[in-house]
Design a binder for these strands. Sequence first.
DNA 1: CGATTTCCTTGATCGAAGTCAAATTGCCCT
DNA 2: AGGGCAATTTGACTTCGATCAAGGAAATCG
Lengths: 239, 239
Amino acid sequence: MDMQSVDAAIPAQCATCRVRHRSICAVLTSEELHRLAGHSRHTFHEAGEALTMESDEVTGYATVIDGVIKLSRVLRDGRQQLVGLQFSADLLGRLYASESPLTAEAASEVELCRMPKLVLESLVGTSADLKQRLLDQSLQDLDEAREWMVTLGRKTAAERVASLLLLIAARSVGKGKSLTGSVTFDLPLVRNDMADFLGLTIETVSRQISKLRNEGTIVISSHRHVVVPDVERLRRRAG
Amino acid sequence: MDMQSVDAAIPAQCATCRVRHRSICAVLTSEELHRLAGHSRHTFHEAGEALTMESDEVTGYATVIDGVIKLSRVLRDGRQQLVGLQFSADLLGRLYASESPLTAEAASEVELCRMPKLVLESLVGTSADLKQRLLDQSLQDLDEAREWMVTLGRKTAAERVASLLLLIAARSVGKGKSLTGSVTFDLPLVRNDMADFLGLTIETVSRQISKLRNEGTIVISSHRHVVVPDVERLRRRAG
DNA sequence: CGATTTCCTTGATCGAAGTCAAATTGCCCT
DNA sequence: AGGGCAATTTGACTTCGATCAAGGAAATCG
């Protein structure tokens, strides 16, 4: 078996996929890829579009090709809390749940690769590698959720904002890469979303950003573009 | 193969185990049980004893036989946040981590069934059922962590205390059982632990408990014993 | 059994973040 | 380029929970 034939065996739509080597598809054999690709299709969504509502029946999963997705929960009286962000290559959807425990909403323009619920689930049943990958991913998501519990429970407003900037900075440079020196990125969230992620009000978020800007920890142009001249300094501000 | 011979094949120490049918051991074959039991031993710990420290090297996992364990993270300046509780039958330890991301401390008297890291991990590699079970568990832990993020980010002090009482009440009646009518249980946490779980101070927790007591939502005798005459009413107070 | 320590409650005051209100900025769209 | 709208910033004031302080109830121990 030479490389040529292996490559040829990959579905056409997967061969050009930008997240092919970082998504769950990275652990699938070409045969498994075919099984999945035969039922997959790409969809496009604009910022603000709801992708899944709390308590909705779950009909499928999706890999995030491009864009950022907000995961949130809402209390009966309307108070909202973001509980996670999903970036490029992440898998969207609560595995095995018949109804979604969360609301998923596009924070930016989003491209998804959707697949039917049962197709992915049966693949999990037959591929130990895929199951392992999903286990690793959910353990890491759990670590991140607990880390964020510390932010929500014990940090000041300024520390929370700094923590969020760090989190987004880390994602924007790419998973696994070290975060040092200076970083530049665009915020995928509007102030309101930041407030909902941080358990604060929009006014408090704005004031804390101004404070970080005034003390030189960050430089902001046009509300969305952020420059962090010294990541270590921002990290100290994050508590 | 008759039932007698199957039962006989179970390790002696497992045959009398109180959590045998609820812990990860429930999905193991008798052969796998033997592999595990050969390297397992029970340990006993008193309230307040540290079981694992943040950044400690992880040498093993443990099933909680009896008692309650606090999982926490501490900021450099000493602020502490509980990020989870582990009850009877739960598995203690972050799978695959070489160093613990959390501190684990006994909240009450605790009995553990300890097993070496590599023994469990190799069992996960060979048993699809075990891997599935661990995946299900970590997905559920993630759901709970996110649920708690809502509590920490968006609820008032009174709602947080009510939420914690509900969480403990649900665990005390047993997983999967419905929680309605009236419930009675003992708090496994002192006020200080409650405060650290809720992102509040001990004084605020005490005041909110007094408030819930004065309005008749709960009845408390001797600081630890709680009666909830109407669970639905407590649920409304939890936001 | 009384002494000591730890845990819990309650009161008085303070401060960080929330609320209400009013600019200001930037973006989209003819 | 200008008008309109949504997002953001900033200011004035309020409030909820933190902090500081004291006293009371329970568990622990000699």
